[in-house]
Design a protein around this nucleic acid. Structure first.
Length: 468
RNA sequence: GCCCCCAUCGUCUAGUGGCCUAGGACACCACCCUUUCAAGGUGGCGGCACGGGUUCGAAUCCCGUUGGGGGUGCCA
């Protein structure tokens, strides 16, 4: 075990990786790196997860996508709670032996009835002094002592919990299996965890855990409860209602650097007046003490703006590289054998300057690789019925057929000359050509596209549309 | 019900008692540029939840109110 602080990140596998989890992971990672510590990945061990190893793989894969690398020397894990199952039971036994915990045979129904009758909240400590031993059906409860617990939280400061508000909570179920709370603490102790950075929802459980740490003879870790990520209704992000899967953003063509940078501006802001900053800056500056206390809205619009900026920061080659998965996916609109990397490369700069997410790229340049792009009927009627449009189309087609130099400048001059003859402004003049060749009224700069398509194909499409 | 947390433009934030007539970013609007659509440039709209204190001075400290969220299981 290496020296230095050990940060625990404990996602529960649910088939996808939550953006909120991603941010918490990033916080842990930044701190572990900056403080020369270790990032310990402990996967929550649920029945469902045990039967689906791919869920765990998914988490590791998503972590690696956001730059938290499994083979980094500061990365340790993944661990499962079940690796420590014996330790959970041993700890529970010790607590019982020490008198810090006791058995109780009340069912939840009985507890509810008692609470109702007395008007108190929850469990009233009925079995505290009944001297019950372990037996099937009996739960082991922690004997919460008198007094109060202060949680020292790096994000929030000191939070005091009166013990009168904490009931004697269950450590072992009636069937003898340990509860999450106990397993959690025992695992952290076994793994030598010194720092726990997690979402704020865990704050109310923290005094219980701290009590357990102490009862087990250890100093509790340094806590940091970070604010929740919420939706526009200000509710905790949920799988049902909200788009929360990191994997989904990845497959839509968000760049990991943009995602990471955006996530880090939620609840925290980099020093200086720039919020678009490289990870190295973040890692060097991130402190839990500077994290906000209030929940933050995960705004896809702003994420998209970040992504656009990151796309524009790429070199042309880098952009082409990043587009590859989207150009060769099975969902691509053109027949695979018609794709031409050279043509894509030629158009890449004009595509790069306007892309928000990479998944939109195929739809922007599909007409280049389609045998016959679908021409929207309404758009065509509207465009060609404009005054002078048909004449421009006919004359431009003729001019393009014999054009000496086939390049964007010449194509532009030619069309504009024809347009001017018919009293059309630049934008108006190119509309019929654009629709005839690309099938749409909007798209990448026209003349660059025509140049890439080539004379033969352009003239073919123009002629075809004229005949229809 | 009980416990805990939170409160600056629509959103994310800067702000740690005077530098605040509250700064930036996203979104929105206008204009410029322009080859459609973007990108880029310039400008605009817009906020300290409310009420009491403390102080020469409060977005900043204290108390309360209101509002929001989270937790409270033999779930994790």
């Amino acid at each position: 075990m290496s020296s230095g602080p050990r940060f625990r990140f404990a996602p529960s596998p649910t088939g996808f990786f939550h953006v909120g989890g991603a941010r918490t992971a990033l916080y842990n990672w930044a701190l572990a790196k900056r403080l020369g510590g270790t990032f310990v990945l402990r996967i929550e061990d649920t029945d469902e997860a045990r039967n689906r190893p791919e869920w765990t793989e998914g988490i590791i894969d998503a972590l690696s996508w956001i730059g938290i690398e499994h083979d980094d020397p500061t990365f340790e894990g993944p661990y499962y709670q079940s690796h420590y199952a014996q330790a959970h039971l041993a700890a529970a036994h010790r607590l019982f032996e020490d008198g810090a915990a006791y058995y109780c045979d009340l069912t939840s129904e009985q507890i509810q009835e008692r609470a109702k009758a007395s008007g108190a909240n929850g469990y009233d400590g009925y079995s505290r002094d009944r001297g019950l031993g372990p037996a099937p059906g009996r739960v082991l409860r922690f004997r919460v002592p008198a007094g109060a617990t202060t949680v020292h939280d790096l994000v929030r400061g000191d939070v005091v919990f009166e013990h009168t508000t904490i009931e004697d909570f269950v450590l072992l179920r009636g069937n003898g299996t340990p509860m999450f709370l106990l397993a959690n603490v025992v695992d952290d102790i076994e793994m030598g965890i010194t720092n726990v950075v997690r979402a704020e929802e865990h704050l109310p459980n923290t005094p219980k855990q701290q009590l357990l740490w102490n009862a087990l003879g250890h100093e509790p870790p340094v806590w940091g409860h970070v604010p929740l990520l919420v939706n526009e209704q200000r509710k905790k992000l949920s799988k049902r209602r909200d788009k929360v899967a990191v994997e989904q953003y990845r497959s839509e063509g968000y760049l990991p650097e943009a995602m990471v940078n955006y996530l880090m501006t939620l609840g925290w802001s980099p020093p200086g007046d720039q919020e678009i900053v490289p990870w190295s800056t973040i890692e060097a500056a991130f402190r839990l003490e500077d994290v906000n206390h209030s929940p933050a809205f995960f705004d896809i619009k702003k994420l998209s703006a970040f992504n656009g900026e990151y796309i524009r920061m790429l070199s042309t080659d880098g952009f082409i590289e990043a587009c590859q998965p989207f150009l060769h996916s099975p969902d691509v609109p053109w027949p695979a054998d018609r794709f031409d990397p050279a043509k894509f490369a030629a158009l890449a700069p004009v595509v790069q300057s306007r892309a928000i997410v990479l998944s939109e790229v195929p739809g922007v340049i599909d007409f280049v690789f389609l045998a016959d792009p679908h021409v929207d009927r309404d758009a065509w009627e509207k465009t060609i019925s404009a005054p002078g449009a048909e004449a421009v189309l006919v004359e431009t087609t003729a001019a393009y057929r014999d054009l000496r130099r086939w390049d964007a400048d010449a194509l532009k001059e030619t069309l504009e000359a024809v347009g001017e003859k018919h009293g059309l402004k630049k934008g108006k003049a190119q509309a019929p050509i654009r629709v005839a060749v690309t099938g749409r009224t909007v798209g990448p700069p026209l003349f660059e596209a025509l140049e890439v398509l080539g004379r033969e194909e352009v003239v073919r499409r123009l002629t075809m549309v004229l005949q229809a």
